[in-house]
Structures are given as structure tokens and as C-alpha cells.
Design a protein around this nucleic acid. Structure first.
Length: 764
DNA sequence: TATTCGCACTTTTTT
DNA sequence: AGTGCGAATA
């Protein structure tokens, strides 16, 4: 083995027992090292079931398992490979009874957590003093640090409220046999403190390897230390320059100070980058070099040269997206690149919408990673709630979610009475509903009782199906059917309803895959767990492989693409410059810088940066200067596209701004102009002063800012023909309101009737 | 009880 | 600009 490894990599792979710290630069082949090292351990007769490899995503875990399967065959199947959360969930399935969990405990995701928080605040009448978001994030923050949220106290009133509410939060989870994400880890830590369970945790693993160690938080580090308490065989791999989860409580110090805790640790540095061209690496190094708080390291590469990094400063966000669309088309036609070679990265999910539109216009297939994930869809969550209720009758939050979903005539008053009864008798809502249906509460009318009985019957029926040994996919089909969900959607028969039905079908086929994989032996609990722990990153399906990938920079960690676009390179957006509470400004700017470093180093061959002078953010127009990170890129590596001195059709005067003075000198002499791989523009559109580098076609698709004319004066009258950027032209049928919020009912030629804000259309 | 409309809130990043 | 919630209405 060890074919084609450099000496440093080989040292890491061949390291024997004892702590090992691998400081690995971006693209230095750390995953490869990790995989080879694990394979080597097995060759050295370490039992696969005594190896734990912790990855930062399920996707990374899957890939690692695949590679090990290829190298080792079936023995790889016995290894523990997964995220901290998945690993802890597995351990808790085995030993959870010791910390108050049954075998079928459920995991509260972000959404469930928020619902609970909302309900608690409402019950306590505190909904006005604290948002659920704040409540949840303060709880999480404390837990990330291993602190007890009930002991929060501090500068603001909010802390006291959280401390007061937390016991109720906690008992709600306990009542439902559920844990939140952080509890997953904390409960295992609890196990480690339990004298009887402790050996089960501490002695279980002979070798523990942790990837992306710079992003572990205090709790995770404690966990790792318990895992290796006996063996001391710990391998950590990471790069402090890629620490981008400070907001989640990650402590890069865990990596940097590794030798303080493990003085006998061997430290290996991987500094050769195999991924990117030297130009891209130069740009990335230029940005990261300005960070003060970091370990100096020199990442180098043999891949000399490469195309310069291209920076395009577009007029606005739409033009930016359009540029990207055309550039991808150009890459396709002139370089034969396929869409799957390309990734578009952005700082926030909200940037994706405009990009989507542009890619659709250019007929480019795309795939969005993250955002509103499949599993967060309402219909999916509803059916999952039915299933959870089957697994666990005391899952009150699930009961409330679906008792009237789809609508079956069980209204608020009925639910309130059931809840009151449940509280009084201290039983679950489902049991309360059952006894109400038998007449336990006299205020309930017979009709309400019948409806409750019908609901209870659905759940009981599903439980029988499960008890009869139905597969997971069968159970889901039954749930969709018996709940009346399918019928309801079928009757509605709107595009959305069809969409939802299709999503449910997708869930069924995922379950069928799961059933096949487990040869029919997989339990509903296992399927639920997989869904709960699946991140947006993991759910990508192979079918959409021929597509451009769009995602946040965070989600791109660990991935690589031949061509990478990083858009929204503007001060205020990236770097975000958003005041973070409890974090000082310098620190968060350094994290933003590392984020830029991660973004740039995803690119193998081409890196394109784009920014917009003007950007619409929630119906507000923002003018942001270009990102300061662009200034940090060595001038010789940066190419700026030329634009015509006089655009063919300039926008309304004041909006045309002088060209940024940040354009590096030398970009004018043509020496580092980039190959214009945007698709060729018809020659007749070229004005003097324009050149091949400018591909914009103003005639077709002029951006939207002239639109305000409509809102601030000339009111629209019914009958006027107007144009809207997305919907095309149409006739105004009705005018509602005036001024900024004036709305128009318009009959569009292509899409039919729509109500639109007046300021988004223009008279032609 | 279900549906519809208007209002407020939203947007940082995720296991 | 989309969502979710509460009030008003059928």
C-alpha cells in the first residue's frame, strides 16, 4: 500500500500507537491519508469494530466507508464511521437506558426545537419578551460549552428567562423520550460519568480518528478524550485556517493546543496542495495571510501557473447571476466542461434565488444543496410525526402537529380540552384523547368525541400494522393512506398538492431503499434516526449528477470542483460584518476570512469571483463596496473584466456609479485578461469601446432598477400594459392601495393572473 | 370549524 | 418576497 504518498503523508499513515496530530492544509490529501491510515490499522490486526472515525458530515462518512470497502472488503462494515452525532446516537441506542432514554428515543431537530420553544413561551406568557429563536440559541450556546442552561445568568434579562424556562424545556423532552442535537453528545458524556457505563464507552475503541478537528467544540473534545482514555490512540486531522464554526462553539484551540493535552503527540504537517493551481492557491494564501491569529504555514503546489482568478463586478445581483449563467454556458461550449464540474458558492442561502432564476433562463440544470431541505417539508414532517406517534404514544408535540392534519374537524377548543384533561390526569395527549373519546370529559360533544376516536383509531391501526411486521416503506404508505393525507392531496389536485404527493412518494422510495439495504430488518426507529441526522449535504441524489451545484460555503467544506464561482463578494455580505453578540469584531472578521479561504481553495482549475454594486435584499436596495478580500488577492493573480466606457443603454443617471477604484493596475494592458469563455455575443451589438470581454446584452434583459418610476408618481391605471421582470408583460386589471405598497392584479400573457407589488413592474 | 386576508417577521453560517 | 400567525368571516 502507501502508493504515491509523499513522505509526510506516509509518516501519518504509518504512525503506530499514541496520539497523532495531522496539521493538513487545504487540498493536501488529508482524507486520503485518513483512509489509508485506517486500512493500515486493519492490516496491523486492529479489529474493525474497535475503530472509530469521526467525520464532519454523513456524506463524508459515506465516502470514507466506500473507499474502505474498496480497499478492505467486508471488514470495513464493522467500523464505526460517522459524525459525532450519529456515533452518539448509536451508543445511546445501546446504553441509553442508563440515562433515561428508551431504545426508541427520538431526536428533535431544529424545527421541533423551535416549536417547543414557541409553545413554552406562549404558555408562560413570555412570547413578547423573548423570541423562540433567542431561547433556542441561548440554550444551544450553553450546551455547546458544556454549561447548564438552567444556570445561565448574566448581563441581560433574557438570560434569566432562559434559565427559568430551561427546566420546562428539559422535562418536555424527557416526557417525549426525546433529545435535541446537543443532548445526543451530552447524554453520552453523562454515560461516561456513570461508573457502570463508563467502561463501555472508554474501552470500546482501540483507535479513534477525528477529521476537521478544528471545528470540534468543547463537548466533542471531552467526548473524544473519554473515548481514548484507555487506548490513547487518537488521531486528529485539521486545519486551523479552515475553522469556520466558531459561532457554533468550535474551539480551534483543540487542534492548536493538542500537544498541551497530549505531550507525547507526534505532529505531522501536510503542506503540499494537490488540488489547486498555484494561482488559486496564491489568491487564497493572500487572503488568509492577513489573519493574525493563526499558525503560520506555507502551502505550496507543483501545479504551476493556471488561469488568473477572474473578478466580475456586475451592476446588480441579477446581472451578477446572469453573468454566471452565461459564463457557465461559455465554459460548456468553449472548453467542453460539463455542468457537474461547476459549483456556485455563496455566503447565505438567500442569495440562491436570483441565481436559480438566471440558471433557469440559461437552461442550465442545477442542484441546490441545503436551504429548505426535503425533510423539512411540511408533508414530510407531518407523516414523520404520525410515525413518531406510533413509536412513542407520549410524543405530545407530534400529537398536536397531526391531530388535525389533514383537517378532520378537531379544532382548538377540542384540543384545549384534551390538553387540560391530559394535564390533570398527567397522561399523554394521545391517551387523553382516547379517554376523552370514551367520555371522560363531559364538556366534549359527542361529535368531537367521535372525531377524537377516529384519530386514535388511525394511530392504533398503524401500530397494529407495525406490530404485524410491516416494512418501513409499507408503514409509511399506510400512514399516508390511513391519515387521509393522500386522499386530501388527491382531491385538492393543485400543482402544490401534486408536488407534496410526489414528495411523499419520494419518502416511500427512500424507505424502500432502506428496507432493501437492511434486507427488511431495519426498524422504523433506525429509519427515523437516519432522517433526523441527515443533513442537507447528505441527501443529494445521484440522478441529478449532471448539474451545477449551488450551496453555501459552509456546506462546501471538504468538497472540490474544477470550476468555482464565489458570488456576492461585497463588504457587508461577505465578509458579513454583522455584529455578533458576545463575539468581538476582529474575531468574526478573521472567521469570515477563513471562510473566504475555504471558498477559494475548493477550486481546482478556475476561480471566478463576482460581486454586485447594487443588491436587493428583502425589497431594499443595498449598495455595498466590493469585498475587502478582493484587495488581498495578489494583483498578478487577478483579472478584472473590462467593461465598455459607455454602456449602450445606461440606467437612470444617479445609479450609474464610477467604476470601483479597486481594479488593480495592469488589468488595462491586456496582459492578464482572461480567456473570454462567456459565449460569444452577436457582433452587431458591440458598441465602440466594448470588446470581446463584455458579453452583456442589454437589449434583452435590462435589470430592474428603473422600475421605481412607477411607485413614486405615475400611478397605474387599470388597463395599462406593464412589464415585470419575471412574468413578462401583462395588463393591469385592478389597483389596490397606493405608494410603496401599492399592489396590482395583473393578467400576464404567459403566467396568467398574479398580484404583484407595483414597484416591481414598469410601464413600457 | 375552515378559510381567507392582512400583518409582522425574516436572512448568516449547521450537526 | 415567502411564511406563519391571528383576526375576521362564511
Amino acid at each position: 500500500m502507501a502508493q504515491g504518498l509523499n513522505p509526510a503523508q506516509e509518516a501519518a499513515v504509518e504512525h503506530g500507537d499514541g496520539p497523532l496530530c495531522v496539521l493538513a492544509g487545504a487540498g493536501s490529501g488529508k482524507t486520503r491519508v485518513l483512509v489509508h491510515r485506517i486500512a493500515r490499522l486493519v492490516e496491523r490486526r486492529v479489529w474493525p469494530q474497535e475503530i472509530l472515525a469521526v467525520t464532519f458530515s454523513n456524506k463524508a462518512a459515506g465516502e470514507m466507508r466506500e473507499r474502505l470497502n474498496a480497499m478492505l472488503g467486508t471488514s470495513a462494515r464493522a467500523m464505526w464511521i460517522g459524525t459525532f452525532h450519529a456515533t452518539c446516537a448509536r451508543l445511546l441506542r445501546l446504553h441509553g437506558e442508563r440515562v433515561g432514554l428508551t431504545r426508541d428515543f427520538t431526536i428533535f431537530d431544529d424545527d421541533d426545537q423551535m416549536r417547543l420553544a414557541t409553545a413554552l413561551l406562549k404558555e408562560e406568557g413570555l412570547a413578547d419578551s423573548l423570541t423562540p429563536r433567542t431561547l433556542v440559541s441561548l440554550i444551544d450556546r450553553a450546551k455547546n460549552r458544556g454549561e447548564d442552561p438552567a444556570r445561565l445568568g448574566g448581563p441581560t434579562y433574557a438570560y434569566d428567562l432562559v434559565a427559568r424556562l430551561f427546566p420546562r424545556y428539559k422535562s418536555a423532552l424527557e416526557r417525549e423520550d426525546a433529545v435535541d442535537f446537543n443532548d445526543l453528545l451530552l447524554k453520552v458524556l453523562e454515560l461516561a460519568d456513570d461508573p457502570e457505563a463508563s467502561p463501555l464507552i472508554g474501552g470500546r475503541f482501540r483507535h479513534v480518528l477525528v477529521d476537521e478537528f478544528q471545528d470540534t467544540n468543547l463537548v466533542q473534545y471531552r467526548l473524544v478524550r473519554h473515548f481514548v482514555r484507555e487506548s490513547r490512540n487518537l488521531t486528529v486531522v485539521g486545519d486551523d485556517d479552515q475553522a469556520i464554526y466558531g459561532w457554533r462553539g468550535a474551539e480551534p484551540r483543540n487542534l492548536l493546543d493538542f500537544e498541551l493535552d497530549f505531550p507525547d503527540a507526534v505532529v505531522v504537517k501536510l503542506e503540499q496542495n494537490y488540488r489547486s493551481t498555484s494561482v488559486i492557491l496564491g489568491a487564497a494564501n493572500g487572503v488568509i495571510a492577513r489573519n493574525v491569529d493563526r499558525h503560520e504555514k506555507t502551502l505550496w503546489t507543483d501545479n504551476a501557473g493556471g488561469e488568473p482568478v477572474l473578478w466580475e463586478e456586475a451592476q446588480d445581483d441579477r446581472a451578477e447571476a446572469d453573468f454566471i449563467g452565461r459564463a457557465i454556458r461559455g465554459l460548456e461550449s468553449q472548453e467542453g466542461r460539463s455542468w457537474s464540474d461547476v459549483a456556485i458558492l455563496y455566503r447565505t442561502h438567500s442569495q440562491s434565488r436570483v441565481l436559480e432564476e438566471a440558471l433557469r433562463i440559461h437552461r442550465i440544470a442545477y442542484r441546490i444543496v441545503g436551504g429548505v431541505s426535503f425533510f423539512q417539508r411540511r408533508e414530510i414532517k407531518d407523516i414523520r410525526a404520525y410515525l413518531r406517534l406510533v413509536l412513542n404514544p407520549s410524543a405530545d408535540s407530534c400529537f398536536e402537529r397531526v391531530v388535525n392534519q389533514p383537517a378532520r374537524g378537531i379544532g382548538d377548543t377540542t384540543i384545549e380540552r384534551v390538553k387540560a384533561h391530559a394535564r390533570l390526569a398527567s397522561i399523554s395527549l394521545l391517551d387523553a384523547a382516547r379517554s376523552c373519546s370514551h367520555g371522560a370529559v363531559t364538556t366534549l360533544k359527542p361529535t368531537a368525541r367521535k372525531k377524537l376516536a377516529a384519530f386514535v383509531d388511525i394511530i392504533d391501526g398503524l401500530r397494529q400494522v407495525q406490530a404485524a411486521g410491516a416494512s418501513v416503506s409499507e408503514l409509511i404508505i399506510q400512514a399516508v393512506e390511513r391519515s387521509g393525507y393522500r386522499e386530501r392531496l388527491a382531491i385538492e389536485d393543485s400543482p402544490e398538492a401534486r408536488d407534496r404527493l410526489a414528495n411523499l412518494g419520494e419518502l416511500v422510495s427512500m424507505a424502500a431503499d432502506f428496507d432493501d439495504e437492511r434486507e427488511g430488518k431495519g426498524t422504523l426507529t433506525e429509519f427515523e434516526e437516519r432522517i433526523s441526522l441527515a443533513s442537507a449535504l447528505d441527501e443529494q441524489d445521484g440522478r441529478a449528477a449532471q448539474a451545477v451545484t449551488m450551496m453555501t460555503i459552509h456546506a462546501a467544506k471538504g468538497l472540490e470542483f474544477p470550476v468555482v464561482f464565489v458570488c456576492g463578494m461585497e463588504d457587508g455580505l461577505f465578509p458579513s460584518l454583522r455584529p455578533r453578540d458576545m463575539e468581538d469584531e476582529k474575531k468574526s472578521l478573521e472567521e469570515e476570512r477563513r471562510l473566504a479561504y475555504v471558498a477559494f481553495t475548493r477550486a481546482k482549475e478556475r476561480l471566478v469571483l463576482t460581486s454586485a454594486r447594487m443588491r436587493r435584499q428583502w425589497a431594499e436596495v443595498k449598495l455595498n463596496p466590493p469585498s475587502r478580500f478582493i484587495d488581498d488577492i495578489p494583483v498578478e493573480h487577478l483579472a478584472v473584466r473590462e467593461r465598455p466606457t459607455a454602456p449602450p443603454r445606461p440606467p437612470a443617471g444617479s445609479l450609474v456609479r464610477a467604476r470601483s477604484d479597486r481594479s488593480p493596475p495592469g488589468s488595462d494592458n491586456g496582459s492578464n485578461r482572461m480567456t473570454p469563455w462567456a459565449s460569444p455575443r452577436p457582433a452587431r451589438h458591440v458598441e465602440s469601446g466594448a470588446d470581446d470581454f463584455d458579453q452583456r446584452v442589454f437589449e434583452d434583459d435590462f435589470p430592474a432598477y428603473q422600475i421605481d418610476a412607477g411607485a413614486n408618481g405615475s400611478d397605474f391605471a387599470a388597463g395599462t400594459t406593464v412589464r415585470h421582470d419575471a412574468f413578462g408583460t401583462g395588463r393591469v386589471l385592478e389597483v389596490r392601495g397606493s405608494g410603496k405598497d401599492q399592489k396590482l392584479l395583473i393578467d400576464f400573457a404567459t403566467v396568467g393572473l398574479k398580484t404583484v407589488l407595483a414597484r416591481f413592474v414598469s410601464t413600457d
